[in-house]
Design a binder for these strands. Sequence first.
RNA 1: GGCCCCUUCGUCUAGCGGUCUAGGACUCCGCCCUUUCACGGCGGCAACACGGGUUCGAGUCCCGUAGGGGUCACCA
Length: 534
Amino acid sequence: MTVRTRFAPSPTGYLHIGGVRTALFNWLLARQAGGQFILRIDDTDAKRNVAEALQPILDGFAWLGLDWDEGPTRDGLGSQGPHGSYFQSERLDQYQAAAQQLLDSGHAYRDYATPAETAAEREAAEKEKRDFIYSRKWMAENDEQAAAFEAEGRKSVVRLKMPREGKCEFHDLIRGPVSIDWAREQDHVIQRNDGTCLYHLASVVDDHDLQITHVIRAIEHLSNTPRQIFIFNALNYELPEFAHIPFVAEPGSKTKLSKRKIEKYLKNREFKQLYNRGEAIAKRVGIEPDPLSFNPVLVDFYRETGFLADAIVNYLLLLGWSLDDKTEMFSRDEMTQAFSLERVVKNEASFDPAKLAAFQGRYMNQLAADPKVKMCEEFLLRAGVIQEPILEATQSKIADVVNAADDRIEMAGDILQFEGFFVAATDLELDEKAFQKRLVKPENVGHLLAEYRKTLAATDDFSAPNMELVLKTWVEQQGIKIGDVIHALRVALTGKPAGFGMFESMEVLGKEECLERIGAALEKLQHAQNRVDA
RNA sequence: GGCCCCUUCGUCUAGCGGUCUAGGACUCCGCCCUUUCACGGCGGCAACACGGGUUCGAGUCCCGUAGGGGUCACCA
């Protein structure tokens, strides 16, 4: 039997990092067994813009490389696969047929209670501190009863007629043997009066129709399992395997990670730090950094800031699963090989933004020069630092900067920290604090820079090694230390107090640009000093 | 509240009765490297929730307690 797993997102408009982790485990199990991974759209709640709300989710899966064998088409407008539609909203006929079958076999009944009446029973039970079990007072077991209720003007829903004694026992691939009292279960509604069907019914029917062999989902579904097993059995469907994985918890907590509590997470230092970095990049590339729709809980955040999909997947893999006490880096093939449900840890795992960033750093360092340059180029373009068509000179400068920046570019968007290399000398903004500290404050640095500039003007070889030689020689002649001038030089050339190697910076800039920038800085210094004198 | 689940450094985890004075990774803190910032190297802080058993021996098995969490819909 070929392994078939599924992930069933609701079209909500964004892809949650915890959901991706669940999807990843499903994907891994299917790929490992050479089976199929299926995407099914849980839109029983039928909202208008399903396609629109689905798109970001499909984009996320595609970007992460979690390819699906069957499910919606890439554009979210249709379905692809041998089982008809993969949208629950388009499978109502099947659900209704199943509901009818359940009714016919006595596993379900028409219930004519009004919502107010069931609510009243529920409240009464609560008041008496006993478990609520529906009285079935408005249950119609045959057509006569139904007709009588209808004569009163009542409307019906279809409820499951659940067992009220004994236990539902099943084996969970992660939790082991599970035993839950049937009496805990309610007579769940599976079909509304308007004919639409609810999740549990739809889910079971779909899992059967799609021949799902392993249902891997978050632990919060564990308590739903008995009623689903009841439906599987009542319909004579073969039971799939169940595996309930723990959920992803908030940073530094064991509460389920939620996309609604971003304000709270922002109080977490590491979460905040990651968010701030992303926000800075987002602003530059024209994304409105609304914490509700753009934050480290959502996959989009990572794509938009220049993360590598592999880094995220690798991090997520290790969130609740491990191979041993040392292996951390897994290629897709390696993780596909190594993954096993047996080694999924049973307790919930907190999302750790800092560790995710650390994985990103490692993956970025391993990335070949070409794709890295390509990624960075895109950010420069989107931020308007460079324009299309990209000149050959610009192209090679990007490569030079990326190469020199080395691991300082952790996410591709970090390239924007080096945008100063791409602007004209006159447009270069000098960091005010650094300017004060390195140029205004030190005695005589202006004079030194002016002198040094003369030396540079007489130099033609601007390669980094030569720049180093020239500066060192010059410094020696002046009888000063390199530190006496190099900081001012950095600010003058790059506008920033920190960055990659000074000599590499000079090489990237080239002679003309270096002279101009030093000149411009000197001029600015002059103004500043005049102001002080006056 | 009922029911169910979980519990090793701040975080992710290794550990499946003796090799545990508990190992790795991230974070944090030192030091080194160094023109800055990063990287890197070296080092450090830091955990078996508690109490009873079982056993020659318990982080590892059992039972309680505590804490945390999930779930109790005409949501998914």
